[in-house]
Design a protein around this nucleic acid. Structure first.
Length: 723
DNA sequence: ATAAAACGATTTTTT
DNA sequence: ATCGTTTTAT
């Protein structure tokens, strides 16, 4: 057996982890240290060298993207298909279990997956049906409560709040929600995990089967697991099967959505004979960038401890630019991008602009357009989350299964066909009272003639239409089914009639849906024994797809710091480095949150291979109001000064154009103008570099001898002019 | 049933 | 400021 393809590309630490004994292993893998490589080679090591059957390997990730990457890399290393190996997300694998054992799990065979949007609609309706005021009981909050409890493994029946009336009400909503899910055979994302966990815990035979089957369990991004995911893993593994977990405590940035960094710490306690490995050699960044990253993260107290190092070059210093405002910040970035490309760096998609919040992307978009910098923004609605796509798929679901209430609700009046809230309220009421689905309730009401002629007519036509639709598409292939739905429901013409840009893109998306359906991979093992339409619907629910269509050009990448995790770029800008923005003001309440913000910054820094640039704006418009004298983020102060090059090119100290501000006469009535020497009570002496605005809005930029240049509002600054 | 007006929220996001 | 949602008016 030639083990060289498996072991040769590895360094010593990686090799130790890959070839470790059959005991629980925890691999603390720093950024850029070859985490995925270790997982992939571990699988290859087991299969090729230890002749482990692919059928006994289970590898779990968080995102479909990570699962797809791992699958591809394992196949390319093994040089053959996975052959029975399970590589998937927590949710994907849970879904697979529930499909296989729907009866034991107490589900119906054709159970539906509720995504968060479906879930919100349902919760909202329940709150209304319970006669509660939804401003006092915001549906989003209730949904958050339900999901948080489920992620702790708790069902409504297990919750008791004797002394807390608000919590008691939430439990009542949770209970009603559970009943509705039961009635409509719906399973939300958290339920996939909870239900499959309970399936294993309550069915000894099934549990034994899977414990005998999956002798080797591997987990990626272990620091992101929440309580139920860890319980799920432990249940799978039992006492006998070793878990191989890879993660990085310094890259835990999802605490706010339930991820428990403690799982990393508890792992060693829960599995006594755990072998611990550390991957600290970095293959991505320059030495300078790593030193900056190490210095920053060193300010966190709760760490397992780790220091990245590299054999690579020292690299350029990290840059810091203090912009006047957010426009100036964006212009500086655009200019640096231009220089970078001119210097011979060919790929613009190897450049990223990272920010704390999505709202920050706007100014960059505006400035990049005016500077002709091609860019691509990540985030926002993904393909299968778009309303028009969901409408179309709801028709498909409803045609496949008339009892699918969420879909019934969604499309009954889209496009409008005269079935309004009044009619639907009556149908819903009957459905709940008689414990039947909306479809059946509607049929009953038509029989019993308990509706006005007009409403009855409209409803009857809808039911008739859906029945006909089902017959018409029955014999068609998937993409033809969808194509037919788009035409016969009028969805396509509904959007086509309107001329707006948004409507045009909706039409394009609907066309794209047909194309997506045509190229949908039906041979996937996950979907065997399922009808194409059902498989496609599962795919849509579990995999929301990309945010934008095809990447047509070599574009600068704009995204949040969170979205950048796992990616790398030659040139990285981390912008908006201001106290209050990053770290966010909202993270100042709980103590642990600040450390998480710092880890987020660490994640951003370690995305950069060659050059890293920080920027912040001394003045910034937020929520419609300007804020001045923003101080640089505390994270800037935590970096080693000798590795930071401050950029303040004199050439750029000229006119910071404010598109929104009035082009007033600078200093008209203040007696202060460009070139004047002034004194400020706090900042001392300085020279006026620039003015803008008029009257009470007038601002001046002053280059202070001690403090450097700042923008001040004349009305508040109390400047004295020196003669 | 549609359109205008008022209201409210506004960190980060996957499944 | 701005976007999405809900209420109110036509």
């Amino acid at each position: 057996m030639d083990v060289s393809p498996i072991l040769d590309p590895l360094n010593e630490a990686q090799r130790a982890a890959v070839t470790s004994e059959d005991v629980p292993a925890l691999v603390i893998a720093g950024a850029g240290s070859g985490k995925t490589r270790v997982l992939v080679h571990r699988i290859a090591w087991l299969c090729e060298v230890h002749s482990v059957s692919p059928f006994s390997v289970l590898a779990v990730t968080f995102t479909n993207k990570a699962a797809a990457e791992m699958r591809a890399r394992v196949e390319s290393l093994l040089k053959h298909a996975l052959g029975g190996m399970w590589i998937g997300t927590f949710h994907g694998i849970s879904h697979r279990l529930l499909r296989a054992h729907w009866q034991e799990a107490g589900l119906k065979e054709n159970f539906q997956i509720l995504d968060s949007d479906d879930q919100l609609r349902l919760v909202k309706r329940i709150i209304q049906d319970m006669g509660l005021d939804d401003s006092r009981w915001p549906p989003k909050q209730a949904r958050g409560y339900i999901n948080a409890r489920k992620e702790e493994g708790l069902r409504a029946g297990q919750l008791q709040h004797r002394n807390d009336p608000a919590a008691r009400q939430l439990v009542r909503i949770y209970t009603a929600y559970e009943q509705e899910c039961e009635r409509t055979a719906s399973v939300d994302f958290a339920e996939l995990l909870l239900r499959s966990l309970e399936l294993l815990q309550q069915n000894q035979e099934i549990l034994d089967h899977y414990r005998r089957k999956f002798r080797h369990i591997l987990v990626d991004e272990f620091q992101d697991t929440n309580a139920i995911q860890y319980a799920w893993l432990r249940t799978f593994a039992g006492e006998e099967n070793p878990v191989f977990a890879v993660g990085d405590d310094d890259q835990s940035i999802y605490g706010w959505r339930g991820a428990r960094i403690e799982n990393l710490h508890n792992f060693e306690r829960d599995y006594r004979n755990t072998q611990l490995f550390r991957l600290e050699q970095n293959y991505r960044s320059t030495n300078t960038i790593l030193s900056v990253a190490n210095a920053l993260i060193d300010n966190n107290r709760e760490r397992m401890g780790k220091k990245l190092w590299t054999e690579g070059v020292t690299g350029d210093p990290v840059c810091l630019y203090a912009a006047f405002n957010e426009q100036d910040e964006a212009r500086f970035v655009a200019e640096r991008i231009r220089q970078w490309v001119e210097a011979g760096h060919s790929r613009r998609d190897d450049i990223a602009v990272l920010y704390r919040s999505n709202a920050q992307s706007r100014v960059f978009e505006e400035v990049f357009i005016s500077h002709s910098v091609p860019y691509r923004v990540y985030g926002g609605l993904r393909f299968f989350e778009r309303a028009e796509i969901r409408d179309a798929l709801a028709y498909l679901r409803l045609a496949r299964n008339p009892d699918d209430d969420p879909s019934f609700e969604r499309v009954v009046n889209v496009p409008s066909r005269g079935i309004g809230q009044r009619t639907m309220a009556l149908v819903r009421e009957r459905a709940v009272r008689n414990r039947v689905t909306l479809w059946k309730a509607a049929e009953e009401m038509l029989q019993s003639r308990s509706l006005t002629t007009r409403a009855a007519h409209a409803l009857e036509r809808f039911l008739q239409f859906m029945s006909t639709l089902e017959e018409e598409i029955r014999a068609l292939v998937l993409d033809a089914q969808i194509d037919h739905i788009l035409r016969s429901t009028g969805l396509m013409s509904h959007h086509g009639r309107e001329g707006s840009e948004k409507a045009k893109s909706r039409v394009e998306n609907l066309k794209e849906l047909v194309v997506t359906a045509r190229s949908f991979d039906l041979d996937n093992e996950l979907y065997k024994e399922m009808l194409p339409a059902d498989a496609f619907l599962v795919h849509a629910a579990l995999e929301a797809g990309e945010g934008q269509g095809a990447i047509w050009e070599d574009c600068v990448q704009l995204m949040t710091l969170h979205a950048a995790k796992g990616l790398e770029f030659a040139l990285v800008f981390i912008v908006g480095m201001e106290e209050g923005l990053f770290p966010s003001d909202m993270s100042k309440e709980e103590p642990g949150r600040l450390e998480e913000e710092r880890r987020l910054c660490y994640v951003g820094i370690t995305r950069a291979r060659e050059q890293l640039v920080f920027t912040y704006a001394e003045s910034r418009r937020r929520y419609g109001a300007d804020s001045y004298y923003n101080s640089p983020s505390r994270f800037i102060g935590e970096l080693p000064p000798e590795l930071i090059a401050e950029v303040r090119p004199r050439a750029m100290v000229s006119t910071p154009v404010r598109t929104r501000s009035m082009p007033g006469r600078p200093g008209q009535n203040s007696g202060i103008g460009v070139g004047d020497s002034v004194v400020h009570a706090k900042f001392g002496r300085g020279v006026v570099l620039d003015c803008e605005g008029a009257g009470s809005n007038a601002r001046v930029q002053v280059n202070f001898e001690r403090e450097g240049s700042k923008w001040l509002v004349l009305a508040y600054a109390n400047l004295d002019k020196l003669v």
